[in-house]
Structures are given as C-alpha cells and as structure tokens.
C-alpha cells in the first residue's frame, strides 16, 4: 500500500477537480460486477426459484429484515432497494482488493475502492443526506427541526455533534477496516515473501488473514447497511 495514487487534475469551468484514477477504475469495476451479477441472477426469474435467484432472494429477505428491525415496513419499504444496492456494492468493493493489488509505474491501481476514505465518506454523507431529506419530506420541516430539541432543549449541541459524528464514524469505520486489511495483506505478501523460507512462512498467515478479511468485508457491508437504516429510521420515525 505504500505507493502513490494516480492523481490527475482536470479543469472544469474554472474549478480544478482532482481525480484519483485508481478510484475511478475500481468504482467502475465494482459497479459493473454488481450490475452483471444482479442481471445474471435475475435474468430467468421463475416462481420456483433456483440457483442464483435463491441467493438474491435471500439477500432481499436479509435486507428486508434489517429494514424491518429498524422501522415500520410501511415507511421502510422505500429504502429496501437502497439497502440491497448498498450491501451488494460495499461487499463487492471490499472483496475486490483481497486477491491482489496492481501497482503500475509505482502507482497503485487495483485495490478496494472502500479502502479510500474519500469513497466511504462520500457514501456516508450520501446516506446521512438522504436521512435528512426523508426526515424533512415525511415529517415536515417544523417536526424535523423540533427533533433537535428533544427530549430536552439543551440537547441541541449534542444533537448537532451527533450528526457529524454519525457521518464520520459511518465512513471511517468501513474505510479503516478495509484499509487495514489491505495493508496487512501487502505487508504479508511483500515483506515476508523475501525468499523460499519467507514464501513458506507467509502462506499460512496470508491465507488466514484473507479468510478473515472476507469475513470482515461481509460484516462491514452488513454494518454499513444496518447503520444506514438506523440513521434513516431515527430521522423518519415520529415516535421518539
């Protein structure tokens, strides 16, 4: 991971936008993979599901369970698709960096897109932004505003801080887990594999860590989706 990022600067209407081409590539790859898998799984839909359809129906029910554990299905149903897309996209993103990393011209190209704080924070801000949007839309602006002074008026500063803390922790938790996993994999693959002995010594811990990283990737995708629904439910539901 100790490599530079392939940064390119583009001037757009007088604003300089910085692109990390590695991120662009990996976001595209992850989106493409999710899209292709989903299309392949739902191409031949049948009343009696088989194979991939079963898997995806299970994913749908799983996310439905997440939504239902946080809010009423009548209000939560509209977030079902958001939840499924989030969990699939993040899971695939987390898996992408595991098998290998590609370094070209001392620039790191292939990695998990979620191993970059910019990406995870973008997702987190998007989710929190959505929660505010739906909070205002479904409860009205005054109810939404009053929520900042509940249950006591002096909770207002804490409530404000909570919003920023939520966003930061949501994004950085995912980033930290995936980034740390990839660093350790790089260290295992790079530093230990210095000779035949090093190769042999590195096999077992690398395998173990990869297995653990798969687990972490799945868990983090679940946690991100779960917290998304928790935050949205917090803003949308009117009973607290």
């Amino acid at each position: 991971m100790g490599h530079e990022s392939p940064l390119r600067h583009v001037d757009l209407f007088g604003v300089t936008l910085t692109f990390n081409l590695s991120n662009i590539l990996m976001i595209t790859v992850a989106s493409l993979i999710v899209f292709l898998i989903a299309i392949a799984a739902t191409r031949n839909l049948a009343m009696k599901p088989t194979g991939m359809q079963n898997l995806f129906e299970w994913v749908m029910d799983f996310v439905k369970g997440i939504v239902k554990s946080n809010m009423d299905w009548k209000t939560g149903g509209r977030f079902h698709i958001l939840g499924i897309t989030l969990i699939m996209y993040i899971f695939v993103s987390n898996m992408l960096g595991l098998p290998f990393a590609v370094v070209y011209d001392n620039e790191l190209w292939w990695k998990s897109p979620t191993a970059d704080p910019v990406i995870t924070l973008t997702l987190a801000v998007m989710v929190v932004g959505l929660s505010h949007y739906y909070g205002i839309r479904m409860k009205g602006f005054s109810e939404y505003g009053k929520d900042y002074f509940r249950p006591m008026w002096f909770m207002f500063p804490l409530k404000l801080i909570e919003e920023f803390a939520n966003t930061l922790t949501l994004g950085l938790r995912l980033y930290g887990n995936i980034f740390a996993g990839e660093i350790l994999l790089t260290l295992l693959a790079g530093s230990l594999a210095t000779g035949v002995g090093g190769h042999l010594a590195a096999i077992i811990p690398t395998l173990a860590w990869m297995g653990f990283s798969v687990f972490i990737g799945a868990i983090q995708a679940f946690i991100f989706t779960m917290l998304t629904m928790v935050y949205i439910a917090h803003k949308v539901s009117s009973d607290h």
Binding site: V34, I81, P113
Partner: peptide, 25 residues
C-alpha cells in the same frame, strides 16, 4: 481533496441504483 472522486462515486452509485432498480431488484 479528490473532488472528482466524490462526484464520480456519487454519480456511479446513483446510476447503479437506478439500473439495478429497473433491471434486477
């Protein structure tokens, strides 16, 4: 500050969401 990445990620996610909603979910 990777402003481009942010925009790209947002756009891609929204596109992915829309496409998946239409063709898969």
């Amino acid at each position: 500050f990777n402003g481009g990445d942010i925009l790209f990620q947002l756009a891609m996610f929204i596109i992915l969401l829309a496409l998946l909603k239409k063709y898969a979910w």
